[in-house]
């Protein structure tokens, strides 16, 4: 018992320490950051938060941009992956296995290597600096995982439910509305969250597709602070931005812990 509690504390410390350090940094004056072991009168400050919130463009714009791209990509992914997963579950074993292997291959592909060609596509079709367009590569890159997860969920629906509905006169769209979507809600939620997290966190494509400051997504905007000057990164302000940017994700993970775990683990079981 003692050992277990100690291990849990160790785990929490390991996971949260870097974040807590950011939290500490975000409230410390620049003076305190430079000399942490000296006692001083004005140790704490809200200055970093003020500067982040009043920056131009305001920090929240990046959050909204990321949120927008994340939600759009998630919706598009589901709209395309749900029918595809249904189709996959209806194919013969040999065909569906072949498709699964292709999808696993795509899921394993280090997609960073695609950025140059994707950039060329963006240039050719004038998709740069457009948040709607940015959701497209995210949708495409999310397909393998989404189809695999949803496909295995579809195979768990008893075929007789489908048959009974067809006899009753339900069309394919009716069946999605009345049977598949309600029955697959947990798997859909898992998939949606994983796709959303991917889109929210994606860096190389957002970096190359978006250059206008007001359209940056959060990861790129944050990295730009780093790139602005190698030697004097405004760490205090940056830490404040990290804390503000992390809050929505921490809430997301706490609220959706179950579907995230089940999504990742059912993906693992499927192999």
């Amino acid at each position: 018992m003692k050992l277990k509690s100690a291990s849990i504390i160790l785990l929490l410390a390991w996971s949260l320490a870097p974040l807590l350090w950011q939290l500490y940094t975000s409230f410390s004056t620049d003076q305190a950051l430079v000399t942490p072991f000296e006692t001083m009168a004005n140790r704490w400050t809200l200055e970093h938060y003020r500067s982040v919130i009043s920056a131009n463009p305001p920090f929240f714009l990046y959050l909204i941009n990321s949120l927008f791209v994340g939600i759009l990509a998630t919706l598009l992914t589901l709209i395309i992956a749900l029918p595809a997963a249904y189709s996959l579950s209806k194919l013969s074993t040999t065909k569906s296995n072949l498709i699964r292997i292709i999808l696993v291959g795509c899921a394993l592909f280090p997609y960073v290597l695609l950025f140059l060609a994707l950039l060329e596509i963006a240039r050719a079709l004038s998709l740069g600096n457009n948040l709607f367009a940015l959701a497209l590569p995210y949708t495409a890159l999310s397909q393998p995982l989404a189809i695999l997860l949803l496909g295995s969920a579809f195979t768990s629906i008893p075929p007789e439910l489908d048959d009974a509905a067809r006899v009753e006169g339900l069309t394919l769209i009716n069946r999605f509305r009345w049977i598949y979507i309600p029955l697959l809600a947990p798997a859909i939620a898992s998939t949606a969250i994983l796709v959303f997290l991917f889109s929210w966190n994606e860096y190389p494509i957002a970096l190359t597709w978006i250059s206008e400051t007001s359209k940056l997504t959060l990861p790129v905007a944050m990295a730009r602070i780093a790139g602005s000057s190698i030697h004097s990164v405004p760490y205090g302000a940056y830490a404040a931005a990290t804390v503000l940017g992390a809050i929505p994700l921490i809430l997301l993970v706490i609220v959706f812990q179950k579907p995230i775990v089940s999504g990742l683990t059912s993906g693992a079981v499927k192999g």
Binding site: P158, E160, L161, D163, A164, V167, W178, I179, P182, L183
Partner: peptide, 10 residues
């Protein structure tokens, strides 16, 4: 009108 072995109720 069809009745299934597993009843196929939603």
């Amino acid at each position: 009108g069809m009745v299934f072995q597993s009843y196929a109720l939603l």
